[in-house]
Design a protein around this nucleic acid. Sequence first.
DNA 1: CAGTATCCTGGACGATACTG
DNA 2: CAGTATCGTCCAGGATACTG
Lengths: 105, 105
Amino acid sequence: MALLDLLGRRWILRILWELREEGLGFRGLQERCGRMSSSVLSQRLRDLANAGIVEQDAGGDYGLTAPGGRLLAALLPVYHWAEEWARSAGGARRKRTNSRPGVQR
Amino acid sequence: MALLDLLGRRWILRILWELREEGLGFRGLQERCGRMSSSVLSQRLRDLANAGIVEQDAGGDYGLTAPGGRLLAALLPVYHWAEEWARSAGGARRKRTNSRPGVQR
DNA sequence: CAGTATCCTGGACGATACTG
DNA sequence: CAGTATCGTCCAGGATACTG
C-alpha cells in the first residue's frame, strides 16, 4: 500500500493534475500550485521521479512518464467524482466536522 | 478540492477498501486496518459519514452509501494501478528517497 | 463491544536564505 | 530560473484510560 501513501501526501494529486496536459518547469509548477514551498516541491518531484511517475524532459521540464500517464487516467474518475461531490454534498450535509474546515494538515 | 484532501488523510483509502464488500463494526474495521488508533478511526468514520460516503446500518455496522459506492468504483482503477506499481517499480527503481522508506507521515 | 477524552511526540510543511 | 539547506511550528496520529 506504499503508493497509496505517496498519493496521500500533500500536493501530490495537485501536481499530477497540473501536469495532466503539458510539461512544466519548476517555477511554473510552483506557482500553479498556489505557492507551495520550493523545498516541498523539490521533495515531491524527487519522490515522484523515484516512483517512475514523473520525469524531466531534455528542456528540464517535468512531465508524466508512460506509467504516470496511466496513473493519471486511473485518477480521472476520482477527480470527476470529487467535483460532483463538491457540487452536491458540498452544499448540503456537512455538520460538525471536528476537524478544521479548510485545507489543513 | 476539499474531497481530495479528505481522501488524502491517512487510513481513509484503507477504510473504503475494507468496506468494499461488507459492512463492518467498529472493532472489526479497526483490526482489519492493522490496529489503527480507535480515536483516529472514530474521527475518520465521522468525517466519512458527514461527507455522505459511509453510514451505519440498523445493526450498527458501517457500510458505504450509494455515492460512497460510486466513489469506491472510481477508486478501483487506482487501487489496481497501485498493486501493479508495487509489483513492478516496487522492486526495481527506488533509490535515494530522503524520506524514510516505510509508511510514515 | 462501541466510542470518547487526553496527552505527547514525530515529522510534514512553510518560510527563508543561499548556490549555481 | 532551478534547486537545496536550515530551522521552527504545528497538528495529525498513536497510545491509553475510561464510560456506557
